[in-house]
């Protein structure tokens, strides 16, 4: 069995394109046999190149919408000063800044979904849309989705869904167009902002403190991914994230496997393993300091 850990469709050259063109159900005729020669060669090329390319990795980051939902659950009051001002959009001139801050504003928008301020939500949606336009992903976003945002401005659940749908569309479009690094930067911006939004209340709310402590894998994934970039700004960001990742690594975490229980009729499995994470006030403060520095670097 050949394992292709973190190998993705995108960015692997002509050979892989041939492979994709050939890929289909198992009902192919003799022409396929000739094509499969190219398939094998292409796949070898893909595997080789994917070891070097940022755009060939699959990684997963927690959604800012999930953080917003957790803040809502804990009835965290609104605090406008936590947001990145929409006026800052003028500062973002290059793709690196635009992508990161599209993620930042998207996380702010998810946060705003918890509160009743229609105009502010529209303002943040507008900056997300503007940055999407600058990053050439706006055309991929269905106009109906844009329209639904305005018509559901007071519907919290719909806004969560629309926010997620918008960013999934951007993620997909950028990956289709071999811009995986931009896709990763959008996710990174959203992840940092979601952390920032939850750090203040985490001082007094255990559930939030634990959730923050559980972000270590996400930090390490980002460092690993962005650290392979050839762009100096991205590498600087990766370096800052590495310092944050080391703070997460210092946390005490226990994990105990418990056999899952599956209900096949309902198509559901209960994952019952136990985990626990301990974070002192000093460790929380250290993480907060690192996140503050990274966020300042992003929104400056």
């Amino acid at each position: 069995m050949k394992r292709i850990t973190y190998r993705l469709l995108a960015g692997t050259g002509i050979g892989l394109l041939l492979l994709t063109a050939c890929a289909d159900e198992k009902t192919q005729d003799s022409e396929q046999e000739q094509q499969e020669v190219s398939v094998d060669e292409a796949n070898d090329n893909a595997v080789t190149s994917s070891l070097l390319k940022l755009d060939s990795e699959i990684f997963s980051l927690p959604s800012p919408v999930q953080t917003a939902m957790l803040l809502k659950k804990n009835e965290i009051p609104y605090s406008e000063e936590l947001l990145n001002s929409t006026a800052n959009i003028e500062k973002y001139l290059n793709q690196f800044q635009k992508a990161l801050n599209m993620g930042v504003y998207g996380a702010d928008l998810a946060y705003l979904s918890n509160f009743n301020n229609a105009q502010l939500k529209l303002d943040y949606f507008k900056v997300v849309e503007d940055l999407a336009t600058d990053l050439n992903v706006r055309n991929a976003i269905d106009q109906q989705l844009i329209d639904r945002f305005a018509s559901n401005i007071d519907n919290q659940d719909s806004l969560y869904n629309l926010n997620a749908a918008l960013f999934q569309t951007a993620d997909r479009y950028l990956k289709d167009n071999k811009d995986d690094e931009l896709a990763a930067l959008i996710l990174a911006g959203g992840w940092v902002e979601a952390l920032h939004l939850s750090l203040d209340p985490a001082a007094n709310i255990q559930e939030l403190r634990v959730r923050i402590g559980e972000q270590g894998n996400a930090a390490r994934s980002l460092v690993s991914l962005l650290g392979k970039s050839e762009d100096a700004q991205t590498l600087e960001l990766a370096s800052k994230l590495a310092a944050l990742a080391s703070e997460f690594k210092a946390l005490d975490r226990d994990y105990e496997y418990v056999k899952p229980i599956t209900d096949a009729t309902e198509r559901v499995t209960y994952l019952n393993s136990k985990s626990n994470i301990q974070m002192t006030d000093e460790q929380l403060e250290a993480i907060k300091t690192q996140v503050g520095e990274i966020r300042a670097f992003i929104i400056q």
């Binding site: 394992r3 292709i4 469709l9 796949n43 959604s63 997620a164 999934q168």
Partner: peptide, 16 residues
């Protein structure tokens, strides 16, 4: 709600 990402890979034969 989608986590906002799409995970996709081109697989051939027994690749994982």
């Amino acid at each position: 709600i989608s986590d906002g990402q799409i995970y996709r890979a081109l697989l051939y034969n027994d690749q994982v």
